Simulated scan of single mutants.
Amino acid sequence: MTALRPCLIASAALLALLGGCRAPKPKAGAASAESHAPGTTLAQIPAACAAYPAGSPGVVRTFCSGPAVVKLTINGAEHVLKGGSCETSGNIFSLNLGVVAGPGLAGPAPDYVGLTVNAPPGPFNDAALSVHYGGKAYLLPHNTGQATPAGGEFSGVTRKGHAKVSAVFTC
Rank of each mutant, 00 (worst) to 15 (best):
His162Gln: 15
Val70Trp: 04
Thr41His: 14
Asn143Gly: 06
Ile74Gln: 01
Lys136Ala: 10
Val60Leu: 15
Pro141Phe: 14
Leu105Ile: 07
Gly19Arg: 09
Ala30Pro: 02
Val168Tyr: 01
Ala30Thr: 07
Ile9His: 12
Pro121Met: 04
Gly152Glu: 02
Leu14Pro: 01
Asp126Tyr: 03
Ala109Pro: 03
Gly161Cys: 13
Pro123Tyr: 10
Arg159Val: 13
Ala101Trp: 06
Leu18Arg: 10
Ser65Asn: 14
Lys25Thr: 13
Asn143Ala: 11
Gly156Ser: 06
Ser155Met: 04
Thr40Tyr: 15
Tyr112Asp: 02
Val69Ile: 15
Pro67Glu: 09
Lys82Arg: 15
Gly151Thr: 02
Ala43Ser: 13
Tyr133Ala: 07
Gly20Phe: 07
Phe124Gly: 01
Ala51Cys: 04
Thr144Cys: 05
Thr148Leu: 10
Tyr133Arg: 07
Pro108Gln: 13
Ser65Thr: 14
Lys136His: 05
His162Gly: 15
Ser32Phe: 08
Val69Gly: 04
Thr144Asn: 11
His162Pro: 06
Gly156Arg: 01
Ala68Phe: 11
Gly90Ser: 10
Leu4His: 10
Ala28Cys: 12
Arg5Asp: 12
Ser130Asp: 04
Ala3Arg: 15
Ala13Lys: 09
Cys49Pro: 03
Gly134Thr: 02
Ser166Val: 06
Pro141His: 10
Val100Asp: 14
Val70Phe: 14
Asp111Lys: 01
Leu17Lys: 09
Gly58Phe: 10
Phe154Tyr: 13
Val157Trp: 04
Pro6Gln: 10
Pro24Ser: 11
Val60Ser: 15
Val100Cys: 08
Val59Asp: 05
Ala119Tyr: 03
Val165Tyr: 03
Pro123Ile: 05
Lys25Glu: 14
Thr2Ser: 10
Gly107Glu: 05
Ala137Glu: 04
Pro123Arg: 08
Leu42Ser: 04
Thr144Ala: 12
Ala109Gln: 09
Ser85Cys: 04
Phe93Gln: 01
Leu15Val: 08
Pro110Cys: 14
Cys86Val: 11
Ala31Lys: 11
Arg22Phe: 08
Pro57Leu: 02
Gly114His: 06
Pro123Lys: 11
Gln146Arg: 02
Ala30Leu: 14
Tyr52Ser: 02
Pro121Trp: 05
Val60Gln: 07
Ser11Asp: 05
Ser56Ala: 15
Val131Asp: 00
Gly104Cys: 08
Ala109Trp: 05
Thr158Tyr: 07
Pro121Val: 06
Lys71Cys: 12
Glu34Phe: 14
Met1Ser: 15
Glu78Asp: 13
Ala23His: 08
Gly152Trp: 00
Ser11Gln: 07
